[in-house]
């Protein structure tokens, strides 16, 4: 696996993504999703909202890195808030 040039932060990042996917799968098996309309301008399933959370979080980080030198952890906190809002009320 050394050819993949792993680092601890990226390993932790991917582990958290895979853990979230496994959790989503288990939740789906236990409580099948029902499409709904929240504050997002489209009807979404739980998987849609998860995808929107991930993609939105990535772009929050990108915008943050593009425009400011303030520590990126602030963007991570903002992303977490955004993801929670999307998952719970999106």
């Amino acid at each position: 696996m050394s050819w993949m040039a792993w680092t601890w932060p990226t390993a932790a990042f991917f582990c958290s993504i895979f853990a979230a996917l496994i959790t989503m799968t288990l939740v789906e098996l236990r409580w099948p999703t029902v499409p709904r309309k929240g504050w997002l301008p489209l009807v979404t399933t739980r998987g849609d909202r998860f995808f929107i959370s991930l993609l939105g979080s990535a772009f929050i980080h990108i915008l943050w890195l593009a425009v400011t030198d303030v520590h990126v952890l602030v963007a991570s906190v903002l992303s977490l808030v955004y993801a929670l809002l999307v998952m719970s009320r999106g």
Binding site: W3, M4, A5, W6, T7, P9, T10, F13, F14, H61, L65, V72
Partner: peptide, 23 residues
């Protein structure tokens, strides 16, 4: 894709010499 993400946070000098540079 995971490999590319791993590369993107490092300065790669050669196969065995890499430096973590964050974002």
């Amino acid at each position: 894709l995971m490999t590319v993400v791993n590369y993107s946070v490092q300065d790669i000098f050669d196969v065995d010499t890499r430096l973590f540079v964050g974002l």
